[in-house]
Structures are given as structure tokens and as C-alpha cells.
Design a binder for these strands. Structure first.
Lengths: 243, 243
DNA sequence: CACATAAACTGGTATAGACATCTAGATTTA
DNA sequence: TAAATCTAGATGTCTATACCAGTTTATGTG
């Protein structure tokens, strides 16, 4: 199991071995693993070397320690999943629904001041504005408006939009979205939302404004969505920063 | 600088000291810090202890190492910040407002079915229920209800609640919250919210339900908050998972 | 001056041992 | 029986040392 002659560091070998046991369910969640001294004894290695291996697994979230008790296996992270940064399409599929779209409008307009600022471009720079009703299992779920700087995303057609905009962006344009910020607020459906979402006047809606950034930090798109509050909850998971 | 008699571990003292130098710009990005052997010599501590301190700073992103060259200061991450996992108090301070609370009720009740399930306890297990109006700059911002299993958090008094619940939990009880999931939805203010948030009937509110987990995955608290939609937007940042 | 080589650094890996602190269970004591 | 105490074993901290493997710099040598 542990080869002291190998050029691969011992701590790394042990690390991979224990990780393997966890990922294959041989060590179960909340089960105590052998103590540091046991590992050291069994493989005839130093306890500090064992600690180096286990510490790495702790910081990777595979294990947790309890002083005086032992070291235990963590529950398999439900999902490393895309921490919320998903497209509508991905999001709905995740929820077991069938996503679709209905294009309302698609045009090139000059960016008004606020929009220009958020997209990091000059005022009146041409941008695409795409308005769509987003459906899940053929029921209106959200009214979505996407803004894209025209210079970054050239040659957009309504055909592309109807297929997969994100796929086009990632594969054809070779642009990678690495980060996004979202603002989420509650509001009352405006007239256009009442109409397209088929809700009563005075109904609540969840407004989500997302700005996405490329790897170099360039703002890339801005999406404003109004979700039917009776059909959609925004769900996400967060980790606490290790102070 | 380093006090060997202190009950605070030496590596932690050194860690805090170097972190301080970085955060205050005394050590600049890409600047090499003293070598491990220099630190060891200067403070008369073992090199392994120095390594423990520096390793922590490396995994926290403050430093990076280059074999044979040295250890260097990382560019300050645009945001180290608590990725959204903040208390109301922290959140409001971040926004430049002065947080405060008004206790509405504080009692021990048996957990009803749904609550029990979400907290991973048996039905009718005693739990604390704490209802508070949360204020920012003395204006009602949210109505918040916190549920805590009584067996996990013993000896809670309204005095503690009025100071800092989280501080009490982390410092006195030595419990660390590592993860949380949130559900965010839009709704219309209910009667109790109309009353305490001082809004009109029919006003929209942002409902946030957060479940927090300890390091071992035990559900620890459930917080239901209703925010005034006209005063509060939920903001967060996400990274795209590296597939 | 140009170039190879050696020396003097750097961080990376590993050892063996010591003592501290915390936990859980066994044992003793009131 | 119940409470207090002890103890074995777990992780946490720390030391002193050794050697390895890269990188840089000084030192010679042609």
C-alpha cells in the first residue's frame, strides 16, 4: 500500500489511499478512521507524516477531526455542484423540469448609462438586448432580459438564441465565464410581467440581476430575470470562509 | 512579537502577525517574505512551527511558495469575504449601517414535524424559538425567527441574544458553522410582518430561509427572515466550478 | 569575458520524541 | 446508587535534526 522507495511522497500515497477508501464508500460517513498512531505503526512511518496526509484531507473536506476523539469521515459533499452559477436551462434540468423559451424581442440598442457602467463599456456602445419568456414544463416561469456587448459577441442570430446561447458562447467564441455577482430582491409584478408570466396584478416576483465576468474580469453579460414567486425559489449553498 | 508563554499556539501567533503585515500592505504583492529558516532563527522557534504558520497562510491564499526561490505575498483577493455566509450583524456593517435588534419573543417549544426534519431531530424535541425585529440605523429591516435545538445550545438567555448570539456560539460553545443552504423567495408581507416591519398591506418581502451546518454536517440552526423589499437586496458572488 | 562549477541559499519530505489537552470509559469513593 | 477520580487513548503543539531537490549567486578557469 505504501512504498517508501517510490518517488511519490509517502504522505501523498497515504492521502490518495484514504481518499480512495472514502470515495468508494469503504469508509462511511461519521465513521472513525484509524488513529494517527495506528497508521504510523501499521506502515512504519512517522506520525507527523500521517498528520500531513490527514491534514490535507481535512482541508479538502474529506475528513474532520475532534480533539480527544478521533478523525472521522465527512458526508460526501452532496454536490461540488456549480455553486449557483448556472443557466436557466441547467437550473431547470437540475430541478427535473423541461426548460424552453419563447423569444419576445431581439435587437441591438445603444447602452444607456447605468447599463454601460455595469458592463464596463462606454455609453451608447451597441449591445444586444434579448427578451425571452422562460418556461418550465411549458409553464411560464420567468421573464428574462439579457444584455450582451455587441463587440464581444458577434454574429448573434435568433436561431442561436433559441438553441443554446451559453453553448455558443463557450464553444464557438471560446469565452469562459468564471465568476458572477447576483442581486436578488422581491417586488410586485410590473405590467409586462403580469402579461407574460400570466399572474394576477399585485403578485410578488423574485427579481434576479446577474452580472457575469470572464476570467480576466471583463464584464460580459447582464441578465435581469423576474421569476414567478409562486413557482420559483432560489436555492444555494455557501461555505464559511476559514478565518 | 512571539510570546512562547502564551496559551495561544506559536504558529497561530506568527500566522496572525504575517497576515497583519499583508493586510496592512507592509508586505506587498509578489514580495518575498523572510525564509522559513530566518523566521525560525529570529524567533527562536522550530522551522516546522514556522512551516505550520506559513502553510495555513498558503491555503488561505495569502502566500504562495516557489521551491528553491522563496515564499511570496499573493495579490489581495478582490474579496476574501465570507461568501455570503454572514450574520445579519456582519451583513449590515458591511453595508455601512448600524445593526440592532428588538426581541419580540424567546421561548422553548417542541419542534413541529417540518422543523424537526430540517434540523435533523425528532419531532417534539425542545428547541429555542427566537423572534426578533432586525434594524439597520434604527429602521426595521427584517423580521427574523431563529430555531436552535436546545440540546446543542444550552443556557441561552435573552441577554446573550441581545449581545451576539453568533459570538456566543463560536467562542463559548466552540461550535463552528462551516456550511449553510439558503432558500430565497418573494412573497407578500403577512400580517405580523406588516406590523413589525411597518409596511403597507400587500407590500413585497424577500423571504430567506437558512439552514446552517456544523463541520460534521449536523444541522445546527434554521433562520427564517422576512426582509423589506424596498430596503434590502440580497447580493452574492459565485465562482464557476472548474469542471 | 564567457562559461562551467561549486557553494549557499530556498522550500519539500521525513523522522523520533516530548508534552499538552480533550474525551470517554473504567474505577473508586462517598 | 451517584458522584468524583483516574486512566488510556485520541488529536494538538513543538522541537531538533536530516536529507532531498530546485534556484541563485559567487567563484574559478579557460
Amino acid at each position: 500500500m505504501i512504498d517508501k522507495q517510490s518517488p511519490i511522497p509517502i504522505y501523498h500515497q497515504l492521502e490518495e489511499y484514504v481518499k480512495h477508501l472514502i470515495e468508494n464508500g469503504i469508509l462511511k460517513p461519521d465513521e472513525a478512521i484509524p488513529s494517527e498512531r495506528e497508521y504510523a505503526e501499521q506502515y512504519q512511518i512517522s506520525r507527523m507524516t500521517v498528520r500531513q496526509a490527514l491534514n490535507n484531507l481535512v482541508s479538502d473536506g474529506y475528513l474532520y477531526r475532534q480533539k480527544g476523539r478521533g478523525t472521522f469521515v465527512n458526508k460526501q459533499k452532496v454536490e461540488q455542484k456549480l455553486q449557483g452559477l448556472t443557466s436557466f436551462t441547467e437550473d431547470m434540468k437540475e430541478r427535473g423540469m423541461e426548460p424552453s423559451s419563447r423569444l419576445i424581442s431581439f435587437e441591438i440598442i445603444p447602452a444607456e448609462q447605468q447599463l454601460a457602467r455595469k458592463l464596463g463599456i462606454k455609453e451608447n456602445t451597441p449591445i444586444y438586448e434579448i427578451k425571452r419568456v422562460r418556461l418550465a414544463d411549458n409553464v411560464p416561469m420567468a421573464l428574462e432580459t439579457t444584455y450582451l456587448p455587441a463587440n464581444l459577441v458577434k454574429g448573434l442570430t435568433d436561431e442561436i438564441i433559441n438553441k443554446s446561447l451559453y453553448q455558443y458562447i463557450e464553444e464557438k467564441l471560446a469565452l469562459t465565464i468564471s465568476e458572477a455577482t447576483q442581486q436578488i430582491e422581491a417586488s410586485i409584478a410590473k405590467e409586462i410581467e403580469v402579461k407574460h408570466l400570466q399572474v394576477e396584478q399585485g403578485s410578488p416576483v423574485l427579481l434576479i440581476v446577474r452580472t457575469s465576468f470572464l476570467q480576466d474580469g471583463t464584464p460580459f453579460e447582464l441578465v435581469k430575470s423576474a421569476y414567478r414567486a409562486d413557482r420559483y425559489k432560489f436555492v444555494h449553498t455557501m461555505q464559511r470562509a476559514t478565518k
